[in-house]
């Protein structure tokens, strides 16, 4: 009955003798008492196995259940982090834009009944007012709704800016808020983005073309979602590939600085991009 091994488990701390019979157990306080024992860890798999076998008893079922429920709850809560806030806000903004576009299209169709010459959405609102009061009322309601959606979108975008200024200011400075959020969404998280090579960031969002290149030897895509960056848009067709390569490189630096909580170097990086 000589204590030989010490094992820290979720359901408590255990002390085993050489035949892996439980000698003592308790909370982490007992560690001091048995500080000179061999601690069971990942290096000694056979001891690990025997210790887990000693705990295989219906006596511990309740403890195992309760402790793991608590641990899992907190693990599931930790998913509410800035990365996922950014991803959800961006998805919400995209949804609002889509819905608004559908409504605007409907409003245009509807208005053209009153005045077939006017097709531009700018003039819709004033037109709706001048139409016959009874028939124009539903149009006005729809147009109010569209305005409300625009306000909501602005508010959501404001929140996105706020989160990104705190979480990834450098990425936001180089890519802008919308593209930066898209990159985090495609990469999965800022952590994953910071571990990517710049060449991978360059083709994020062009996975289909990229794997087609690997499988069927088609031309390599020059850019993925990065094509939305203003510098890439501005560049002539023969320069697009090179420009997106440089921007991807700056983004990769920015993501690494953001993830490891470095200083703000966004202005310098943006200057490099602007002088292209």
């Amino acid at each position: 009955m000589q204590p030989a091994y010490y094992f820290a488990h979720t359901i408590g701390h255990f002390v085993f003798d050489e035949n892996f019979a439980i000698v003592d157990n308790g909370t982490e306080k007992i560690h001091k008492k048995y500080a000179n024992l061999i601690e069971i860890n990942e290096q000694n798999i056979s001891a690990y196995k025997k210790a887990l076998l000693a705990l295989k008893s219906s006596h511990y079922h309740n403890l195992l259940y309760e402790q793991n429920i608590v641990a899992t709850k907190s693990a599931l809560r930790s998913i509410a982090n800035d990365d996922n806030f950014i991803i959800q806000t961006l998805a919400s903004i995209d949804d609002i834009s889509k819905v608004r576009d559908i409504f605007v299209h409907r409003l245009g169709e509807w208005c053209s009944l009153f005045n077939p010459e006017i097709t531009k959405s700018k003039e819709l609102f004033s037109l709706a007012l001048t139409a016959d009061a009874k028939d124009a009322a539903p149009l006005n309601k729809l147009s109010d709704h569209i305005n409300q959606l625009s306000v909501l979108r602005e508010k959501q975008f404001g929140y996105l800016k706020q989160v990104m200024d705190k979480h990834c200011p450098n990425v936001a400075a180089v890519a802008g808020y919308e593209l930066g959020a898209h990159l985090i969404e495609l990469g999965g998280s800022l952590e994953k983005l910071s571990k990517m090579a710049s060449s991978q960031i360059q083709v994020l969002g062009a996975e289909k073309a990229f794997f087609r290149h690997i499988l069927h030897n088609t031309p390599l895509p020059k850019h993925g979602i990065i094509a939305l960056h203003y510098a890439v848009k501005k560049a002539t067709d023969d320069k697009k590939g090179k420009v997106s390569g440089i921007i991807a490189e700056k983004l990769s630096i920015a993501a690494k600085v953001d993830y490891f909580k470095g200083d703000y170097i966004g202005d310098k990086l943006r200057k490099d991009v602007e002088t292209l």
């Binding site: 990942e42 295989k56 079922h61 195992l64 793991n68 429920i69 641990a71 899992t72 709850k73 599931l76």
Partner: peptide, 30 residues
């Protein structure tokens, strides 16, 4: 997680099965 809340013989382990050592301190031998 909902299932394990209902059934008290189901213990939830939020971990990757490809790395068994990461949940070794949460379960027992089986």
């Amino acid at each position: 997680f909902h299932v394990s809340n209902e059934r008290h013989n189901v213990v939830p382990i939020y971990a990757d099965a490809a790395h068994p050592v990461t949940y070794a301190r949460s379960i027992c031998a089986v």
